[in-house]
Design a protein around this nucleic acid. Structure first.
Lengths: 190, 190
DNA sequence: CTAATACGTCAACGAAGCTGACCAAAATCG
DNA sequence: CGATTTTGGTCAGCTTCGTTGACGTATTAG
């Protein structure tokens, strides 16, 4: 895959062969993906952000509520690994959540150094409120796009994730043991 | 669409009817979407972020380079509308980019109050470097997922965007006049 | 001429990340 | 047992990138 010699003033120079045309398309494909991800992610988070702002919180609080809600009893260390931030950064968000009664810390029964994190009822209520807001938005997009598109969306997003994130996702999202494995695609499909 | 009465300890209570099963799936569907977007977006931006960090820049600089690169001669006002930030925020990123020779400002010939923004060669080079990094990542995901999935990905991401963002996208991404209109789907497909 | 527009800038602030240093409690290893 | 590692918390300071509010200037439009 060479260095795409000449794709400057796109759309100007009429491409000569199919090679150029293909290169141009791939270029425009990625530009489109960049736009879609920027705008899409921004608007995807806009709803919860508005609710959180009223409570003096931010996106980081939502992430904690989300992942603690998904895996009640998660340890601080596991949460840090999932979020990929430092404990100082987590602390500034987690401590207030505990103090204001959204999250409880209970010492682990095997290892009493651990603080197992769980949502309180208050925390569950807030998480659910944020969840519902986002649900409407996403479900609307899913309905418009259709089930085939949704499946494609999931496959591409999964592909955009790094290997570690993929592993964490599988751990965080038990793929419902009643159905068979969904898409154990290896990432060696060049 | 009622308030999902009872989906707490997911996977425990064997669902009784198809209704519950469906509700559960919709819940888990959204949880999965949240995870996918969080991890996917993060890893999507990780590559450029690393390059930018070496140059003492951040994601905001990349966005400016990206959108100025897409629409050379864009005005400051248009850029502000696309990014959805204040001029003060933009200023702190744009001014250094101009001072360090990545972007040029030329007065508009119709309206000389305007500063039309264009990438210099240096700016184009950096944008291209960031672009190539992301290209590898995205193309890998696209190849793994396949063309049908890519089309689905695009449809869903478009649906996640708000109406204004969708309009801006159409303006920013001229859908190649040689081909017919791609997907002029109205958002009234309930 | 006056008013609106496009852009810039100073000041202060907030959210959320970072590094580095240091500490306590509990588990683990020798 | 005693030393070390691990888990988690905390203090201090810094950076990026967003915000409001106020004010200034050039230029266009009424």
């Amino acid at each position: 895959m060479p260095d795409t010699p000449d794709t400057k003033a796109a759309g100007e120079a009429r491409p000569v062969g199919a090679g150029r045309q293909l290169l141009f398309l791939r270029e425009e494909e990625l530009r489109l993906a960049q736009d879609l991800l920027f705008f899409g992610y921004r608007d995807f988070t806009a709803g919860p952000d508005a609710i959180l702002a009223e409570l003096g919180m931010g996106r980081a609080h939502h992430r904690v509520l989300h992942f603690v809600g998904r895996r009640p009893g998660i340890t601080v260390g596991e949460l840090l690994a999932i979020l990929g931030i430092t404990k100082q950064s987590l602390g500034r968000v987690l401590t207030p959540l505990v103090e204001e009664g959204y999250v409880t810390q209970t010492p682990g029964r095997n290892d009493r150094r651990q603080r197992l994190l769980t949502l309180t009822e208050k925390g569950e209520a807030l998480e659910r409120r944020l969840f519902e807001r986002q649900r409407e938005w996403v479900m609307q997009a899913y309905r418009e796009a259709g089930p085939v598109a949704v499946e494609g969306f999931r496959r591409v997003m999964r592909g955009l994730m790094g290997p570690e994130a993929r592993a964490q996702l599988d751990r965080a999202a038990p793929p419902d043991p009643r159905s068979g494995p969904s898409h154990p695609k290896p990432r060696s499909a060049a």
